[in-house]
Nucleic acid binder design. Structure first.
Length: 507
RNA sequence: GGCGGCGUGGCCGAGUGGUUCAGGCAAGGGUCUGCAAAACCCUCUACAGCGGUUCAAUUCCGCUCGCCGCCUCCA
């Protein structure tokens, strides 16, 4: 039984889906006008992990995540750069997905774009007007507004009453006096010169921000879809308004709401939220150039998805080292001949119980602990601790030669890391940024994610030769020669680990 | 100003009314190794402060202090 913290209810609840065994989820995606930053990366990773875990857990998951490609900032950007809005949004969308691919984020099943849905938004707004849930303001900066008072529980998602919301309304933004309530928000904006517009019953204009998500999520996932997610800075007003619009159309909206925490930056005593407006962001691509993308996934897994997390150089480099030791485990397992899920290729296995038996004894409790942690509101830090413990025990088992126990643990580790979208590199060519198919579904991700490093056979052969030479030198105890070869290898970017079962080299 | 959240050992970060311990990173010691690397073992015994409830609180309640988020576009 999966439990998650439901923002609307305000506590952890059991995930109860519309159809047993299926999860239809919608996660608000980016507005594409600029380079994605670490915050976008963190949120995408959080939701990727949730999606993958639910899939691993046996759910058939439909994952929809939108791209907002009509918006003030895109328009401004286009004007600044002398390009079209479409050019701006297409460019930054491709940058965004490139970064997502490198992070090993599985592509959503559907990526609806606001511009593809304008007709349907117009119809939706027309319907809201007809139902008396929206009204038109004529004149300059006019448009169609949603009447917040027309639905019963506006504010439920932020857990505030309309009265409370009114108290602080206008505290930071000027309120248009023509609105019936200061809380009313735009569904349709009348077009201004030089802006992209679409025809509508209220004249040429463009949709407000919130309406796209209501329309697209209901269109693709239908009434009462299971889970609506996003960053917790979207709770109000964006998600509150999405909900209001759907309820205003007398549609059943999301059954569950969940929100991921922000990335913070800065010094002692807690940082501030990373955001474009504060100018304190680190571009995702910069970080990806400096770190193995898997390290970022590890850093994200080591904090809970709902918590704010600091993600600066010290956090990422700590994650680098964690990753390094996890990869070292994979190399060690390979060198010992332990193959995940295949038992151990060792005489130990022949004399005692079968590999399957060992797995039943050893692996299952680990998997159970992992599932228990993840079922409790996707407690990835705890799940990660289970993985770390299994790795330790597997390494120890290899050290003492208990390859049967090791095999079961190695298999468990692969199972768990796979469920979270993490692939360990055992030095055989799984590359740093290799994409991971979703557990249990074999869903392929975009081609560019599978950056298999091209290997030059000639260089590989040279390295193998050098390693063999070094082993020979060591065998005749000519350590001067062997150390010289090691340095030669180091200059090629190749590192060496001597194990009882032979020398491993890796980059 | 309103609403909400958080404060755990050198750092990051789970968790719990009472027993032995989260975990990661870092540090120190040890084992193994020609060395290196890796690994394993051990050590570093924390829960902001002040009250209260309780046989017992880091865990529940209250207050104080500090930090953060939302109330505007934001992942």
């Amino acid at each position: 039984m999966v439990r998650l913290f439901d923002t609307l209810i305000g506590r952890e609840v059991e995930l109860v889906t519309r159809e047993p065994g299926k999860v239809a989820m919608y996660v608000c995606g980016p507005t594409v006008y600029d380079a994605p930053h670490l915050g976008h990366g963190r949120m995408a990773l959080c939701w990727d992990v949730i999606r993958r875990y639910l899939t691993w857990r046996g759910y058939e998951v439909t994952y929809v995540s939108n791209v907002t490609d009509v918006e003030d900032k895109i328009i401004r950007r286009a004007a600044e750069t002398g390009s079209t809005e479409a050019e701006v949004s297409q460019h930054w969308e491709s940058v965004y997905f490139d970064a997502m691919d490198r992070l090993g984020i599985a592509r959503p099943d559907q990526v609806p774009h606001a511009t593809e849905y304008v007709d349907r938004m117009v119809r939706f707004i027309t319907d809201l007007v007809r139902r008396g849930r929206a009204y038109v303001i004529e004149g300059e900066n006019g448009g169609v507004y949603f009447a917040v008072d027309s639905i019963p529980d506006y504010g439920a998602l932020v857990h505030r009453s309309v009265e409370e919301l009114l108290e602080s309304a206008g505290a930071r933004v000027e309120v248009d006096e023509r609105k019936r309530s200061p809380l009313d928000f735009t569904l349709w904006k009348a077009g201004k010169p030089g802006e992209p517009t679409w025809p509508s019953p209220w004249g040429p204009g463009r949709p407000g921000w919130h309406i796209e998500c209501s329309v697209m999520s209901l269109d693709l996932l239908d009434d009462g879809f299971d889970l609506h997610g996003g960053g917790n800075d979207l709770v109000f007003p964006h998600h509150e308004n999405e909900r209001a619009q759907a309820l205003g159309a007398d549609r059943r909206f999301a059954r569950h709401w969940a929100h991921s925490g922000m990335v913070t930056v800065g010094g002692e005593g807690g940082g501030e939220k990373m955001s474009k407006s504060l100018g304190n962001f680190t571009t995702l691509l910069d970080v990806l150039d400096r770190h193995d993308p898997r390290a970022l996934r590890i850093a994200v897994l080591q904090s809970h998805y709902r918590s704010a997390m600091m993600l600066g150089p010290s956090e990422t480099s700590a994650a680098d080292r964690t990753l390094e030791s996890m990869d070292a485990h994979a190399r060690k397992a390979r060198a010992a001949g332990v193959r995940p899920g295949a038992g151990a290729r060792s005489p130990v296995q022949a004399e005692g119980s079968s590999g399957d038996h060992a797995r039943a004894d050893t692996e299952q409790p680990v998997i159970d602990a992992f599932r228990e942690a993840m079922d409790a509101d996707f407690n990835t830090p705890q799940a990660f601790a289970v993985i770390a413990g299994a790795i330790s025990r597997a390494n120890a088992a290899i050290d003492v030669g208990d390859l049967v126990a090791a095999a079961a643990l190695v298999a468990a580790v692969e199972e768990m890391t796979g469920a979270l979208g993490l692939v360990l590199d055992d030095g055989t060519g799984a590359t740093a940024s290799r994409g991971v198919p979703i557990a249990g579904r074999g869903l392929s991700i975009s081609r560019s994610a599978v950056e298999v490093t091209e290997v030059d056979p000639a260089i590989e052969a040279t390295i193998d030769e050098l390693v063999a030479d070094r082993d020979a030198a060591r065998a005749r105890r000519d350590f001067e020669a062997s150390d010289a070869i090691r340095e030669q290898l180091a200059s090629l970017g190749v590192r060496i680990e001597d194990t009882p079962t032979g020398t491993i080299w890796f980059r």
